[in-house]
Design a protein around this nucleic acid. Structure first.
Length: 557
RNA sequence: CUGCCCGUAGCUCAACUGGAUAGAGCACCAGCCUUCUAAGCUGGGGGUUACAGGUUCGAUUCCUGUCGGGCAGGCCA
């Protein structure tokens, strides 16, 4: 098993060569690891421990045999046996210099991989219904989705970003009824106000615009209000257009873009919903009961069968969901990732069951899901619950206006998606090292400042002799930079952008520590050039990492 | 009641998917200091990884049970 870590890969080759001699046929996964404890060296191999059982030999003796057969390498200063049978490698300082040269030559491409070359992935996220402004939960989803798209693109995948919206269901009818009630001058609580209604002030704004016969642009088309409060169809169209327009503004403020907005209504008009029902029926997976049409999802792991067509003849949301995912598959996306709140986790089994039941050869476990929990907002030591704009919740736009796009993205990506997150507005606004975004961005700005002070051209450092880079802080920093490609690959594979955030905090921390310990612009020209080269490599890595998160890297702060 | 997710320093979170002495940041304590731009820097204390078993050379990680929290369980989405 080779690694994308440049040095792990080379060490694995060395150990592999030794194993060829000792035990050519033994099954060993050549995992080279980074010990937590520095005294255990820079890297270690547990190959001898893996071999102990099949060969029925003492792991330490096996380790000794591996050491004897290990080909000599200039990278390795010392290799020794420790613990139960670990082989620990202590590298020569020069082993790390290659990474600086590599980063500086690859620049923006440093950290990219080709694991997904030639493959297509559709990532669906946000997918908010057009019934209100985007809230902070959508913000988390937008940040996660965009970062994941960037991560996959960096691994060579052809990424398609899609936003699905339900413009055909009960909620839209509720929206239209709410706007209509407002257009007739009613308020929440009045006699005649619909029982199921959206009560936010934004509904009143839409009603006012509707009566004023305004025109709104969204999804590449214009919608003009009829102004007739009895015209529910016009109200529905206009309200959806207004909210889609508002959501577009939210997404623009957050610098998130989509390749496509997929309308649920389209699944009805192009016959996909009917076709899906027909396919499921033809596959013999449906039955009639109590006037409704059911699907035997229990045959595919669901805990109860699900209604497809209600007794009133309309479909449950689950049918267009299945139809939509069949469409994804048929559009050529053999990989699909859906980002949703954990409150939707119940739909996963259903959709997957439906996709298996149609018998179209869709991969088992299609699509993948990334679920995230809710976000709460703290400001001035108190939880913020009310927003004037939304009437009931903190909107994404509020959060961006209170802080910044960079802070919101960085913060929302900083935790594992499945843990609840409390967004601290005051911390996000802080201009000091307590603020993680500031801390990382400032590392970048500091490097830029050093280069400005130096006044030279970074390009002239290409032939710098890196031998002077041997101070402890410099070794730590080079080790950190060498991990970057692996971090990116893991973050993509595990659907875990927070790994990148934590990495960048660590990288910035290593840099600040170095900056505090050593001066870069020293009189010794060779040392100065070597340090500037490392600083430049650090700068490139920070820029690349922040770009994946959709966070800017200012040169001055 | 059932299913899924979670439980790690006082707080917020990590831990390279089974590795060695579980790590950071706040907060706390003690020193230092005004720099290539920072009310900054360096060091230190702090843990039965919720609890009890199991699997093996080795468990925060995998399995079982208990306790605690979140989310679901509709012919709503």
């Amino acid at each position: 098993m080779s690694s994308i870590h440049p040095l792990k890969e080379q060490l694995a080759l060395l150990v592999g060569a030794a194993l060829e001699v000792i035990a050519p046929d033994a099954p060993v996964s050549l995992e080279i690891e980074r010990p937590k404890n520095p005294s255990h060296g820079d890297f270690s191999s547990n190959a001898a421990m893996q071999l102990a059982r099949p060969l029925k030999k003492n792991p330490r003796e096996l380790a000794q045999a591996v050491l004897l057969e290990l080909p000599p390498s200039p990278l390795v200063a010392r290799a020794e046996i420790a613990g139960a049978g670990f082989i620990n490698f202590h590298l020569a300082p020069a082993a790390w210099h290659g990474i600086v040269r590599r980063v500086r030559s690859e620049r923006g491409a440093f950290g990219r991989g080709d694991a997904g070359a030639g493959q297509h992935v559709l990532i669906e996220f946000v997918s908010a219904n057009p019934t209100g402004p985007l809230h902070v939960g959508h913000g988390r989803q937008a940040a996660l989705g965009d970062a994941l798209c960037n991560l996959y693109a960096a691994q060579g995948w052809d990424v398609y970003r899609e936003f699905y919206y339900n413009d055909a269901g009960v909620q839209i009818a509720t929206l239209a009824a709410s706007v209509q009630a407002r257009a007739r001058g009613l308020k929440p609580g009045d006699a005649g106000w619909p029982e199921a209604a959206y009560n936010g002030d934004y509904i009143a704004d839409i009603a006012a615009d509707f009566l004023a016969r305004k025109t709104v642009k969204s999804d590449d088309r214009e919608t003009t209000a009829s102004g007739d409060a009895d015209d529910v169809e016009s109200i529905r169209e206009f309200a959806v257009a207004c909210l889609r327009h508002e959501q577009d503004l939210d997404l623009t403020a957050f610098a998130v873009r989509f390749d496509n907005y997929y309308l649920e209504s389209g699944l009805y008009t192009d016959g996909r919903v009917e076709a899906t029902v027909a396919r499921l029926a033809a596959a013999g997976r449906t039955y009639e009961q109590d006037g409704a049409l059911w699907l035997r999802t229990t045959e595919y792991g669901d805990d109860k069968d699900r209604v497809m067509r209600k007794s009133d003849g309309s479909y449950t949301y689950f049918v267009p969901d299945v139809a939509y995912h069949i469409a994804k598959w048929e559009r050529g996306f053999t990989r699909a990732i859906n980002i949703q709140g954990t409150d939707h986790h119940g739909t996963i089994a259903r959709v997957r069951a439906g996709l298996q039941a149609v018998g179209l050869g869709i991969a088992n476990g299609y699509p993948d899901y990334l679920l995230h929990t809710m976000v709460r907002v703290m400001r001035g030591g108190e939880e913020v619950k009310i927003s004037k704009r939304a009437g009931s919740y903190v909107t994404l736009r509020d959060l961006i206006e209170w802080t910044s796009k960079d802070a919101v993205r960085f913060f929302l990506l900083s935790r594992k998606p499945d843990t609840e997150y409390i967004f601290d507005v005051d911390l996000a606004r802080a201009q000091n090292n307590d603020n993680p975004v500031y801390y990382v961005q400032y590392a970048h700005a500091r490097i830029c400042r050093v280069f400005e002070e130096w006044g030279g051209d970074a390009g002239t450092l290409d032939d710098a002799d890196l031998a002077p880079l041997a101070a402890p802080h410099e070794l730590v920093l080079m080790q950190r930079i060498a991990e970057y490609p692996e971090i990116i690959a893991t973050a993509a594979k595990e659907l875990a952008p927070h790994i990148v955030v934590h990495y960048l905090q660590g990288l910035a921390g290593d840099f600040h520590a170095w900056y505090n310990a050593e001066k870069f612009l020293v009189d010794d020209a060779a040392l100065k050039r070597a340090r500037l080269a490392l600083a430049d490599a650090t700068r490139i890595t920070i820029v690349n990492g922040l770009a994946l998160l959709g966070v800017s890297a200012p040169e001055k702060m």
